[in-house]
Structure formats: structure tokens, C-alpha cells
């Protein structure tokens, strides 16, 4: 009898050979995984090559209005003389909820907007419906003084979503928001910019940097990070009420 039981004559790997085989399998797996992770991820819907997107790592390099250059984020508040007389804040509409959004130049026409409230971490969530834009209820209504915020998905799991073409939006294009009171607030696009989410210019997007009624349209862009399941950039369109 052998000192070691043999099982039906199956050929056994020596321990060294088994370790080598296991390591080889693992290495192959890691290599294939790396290919999967790297991926050709630089061709998402609203990438820079879609022309109109202006990459602006320095926010002050592309102010939305020549008349009111934006402060860098989180820069000092705009200089305002103490005791200034009545401010010129441009056209301003009364409060009224947005009920429809139309951006003819990029084929956006939605008769419904989802209300969006901040989550517990103070972050603005995207709409639950990929086909609908959402509006931030904690900000000004579109048409009121300050930056009103409308966010929409660039894509869903199965294809393009409502703001798929936001990166194509051109400076000077019209954005129309119909409101519950029947008025239509018409905005003109000043800039379309793309930021790494880690460098999102919070104050420039959500703060008052322009002293007038404005609109921000926000979606995702850049590369898609499969480990987080999110795009790495945000695309933000800036527009003002006319």
C-alpha cells in the first residue's frame, strides 16, 4: 500500500505545478479584467469632439457674460460697493413652477419636469425617469432672479436619455421653459462647459455670479467609469433670461 491514498488513478499536479497553474489563471484573469476596465471609454454621448462643449478647467477663462465675469470658484464674492443704489438685476419673473422644457436645437421637448430635492448629503440627485428633465425646487424657479437648475440624464442603461445632446448645445441657442402661470421664460445660452466631477465648480454653477435670472442645464459627460457606474464629468450649460 502506498502511504498516500490514490484516487482512481487521476493524474495529480505536484504542488509547485499547481501553484504555477493557479497563478497563471489568476494573471490571465487580471489581464482580461484590466482590458475590460481600461476599455474605449472616451467616446460617450456628449464628448468634447461633439464641437460645442468648451472644456474650461479655469472657470474664469470663459465667463457666461462679458458684462459680469464670473468669480473663480470658490473665489471671493463679487465686489459690490457698500450702500449701492438699487441694483440692475435685469428681467425677473414672479415665482411659478416650470411645467415644460423645450430646446429645439437639440431636440428636447418635455411636457413634464420632475421636482428634485437635495439628498441627505446635500447633493442634487438626477431625475428617476431617464426621459424627463428635473428641476431643483430649492433654487429659483426658472425666470426668477438667480440660477435656476434643471438636470437630466445623458443616457440610461439602454440608450440615450433626455439630455443626450446637451453637449451639442450652441452659444446663442434658445431654451424655453413654460411655467404653471402660463408664461414662457426664454433663455439664451451663454456657455457650455465640461468639468471633472471632482473639480465641479459648485459656486459658479449654483451661486449668484451674474446678478440676473439665469438657467443651468446639467448632465453627465466625459468617460464612463465602470467601477463606480458613473461618468467622470458633468456638462453644464449656462443661459440667461431674455
Amino acid at each position: 500500500m502506498s502511504d498516500r491514498p490514490q484516487h482512481d488513478g487521476r493524474r495529480r499536479l505536484t504542488p509547485v505545478a499547481a501553484v504555477v497553474a493557479a497563478a497563471a489563471t489568476a494573471l490571465t484573469g487580471a489581464a482580461v479584467l484590466a482590458v475590460g476596465l481600461r476599455g474605449p471609454d472616451d467616446g460617450p454621448p456628449a464628448a468634447p469632439e461633439r464641437t460645442a462643449v468648451v472644456a474650461a478647467p479655469d472657470p474664469s477663462a470663459a465667463p457666461p457674460s462679458p458684462a459680469a465675469p464670473a468669480a473663480p470658484d470658490p473665489g471671493p464674492a463679487p465686489p459690490v460697493a457698500a450702500g449701492a443704489p438699487a441694483a440692475d438685476l435685469g428681467p425677473v419673473l414672479p415665482a411659478s413652477d416650470p411645467v415644460a422644457l423645450s430646446i429645439p436645437s437639440i431636440g428636447v421637448a418635455s411636457d413634464v419636469l420632475e421636482p428634485l430635492a437635495l439628498d441627505a448629503a446635500g447633493v442634487l440627485p438626477a431625475p428617476t425617469d431617464y426621459a424627463l428633465p428635473g428641476w431643483y425646487t430649492g433654487g429659483p424657479r426658472p425666470g426668477q432672479f438667480g440660477p435656476a437648475v434643471v438636470a437630466g440624464h445623458v443616457d440610461g442603461p439602454d440608450g440615450p436619455a433626455v439630455f443626450y445632446r446637451l453637449g451639442e448645445l450652441a452659444v446663442g441657442a434658445n431654451v424655453e421653459v413654460t411655467r404653471a402661470d402660463g408664461t414662457v421664460a426664454t433663455f439664451v445660452v451663454d456657455a457650455v462647459e465640461r468639468y471633472a466631477k471632482a473639480e465641479f465648480p459648485t459656486s459658479r454653477v449654483y451661486g449668484n455670479t451674474t446678478d440676473r435670472a439665469e438657467l443651468r442645464l446639467i448632465t453627465c459627460g466625459g468617460a464612463f467609469d465602470r467601477t463606480t457606474g458613473h461618468y467622470v464629468d458633468n456638462i453644464v450649460a449656462y443661459a440667461h433670461l431674455v
Binding site: 460617450p44 468639468y195 471632482a198 465641479f200 465602470r226 461618468y231 458633468n234
Partner: peptide
């Protein structure tokens, strides 16, 4: 900060 507004369905 930022907004998570894509699910990657159109990523290449």
C-alpha cells in the same frame, strides 16, 4: 458638487 446623471448605456 456634481450630479450623477448617466447610466452608461450609450458609452462606447
Amino acid at each position: 458638487g456634481s450630479v450623477a446623471a448617466g447610466a452608461g448605456g450609450t458609452a462606447v
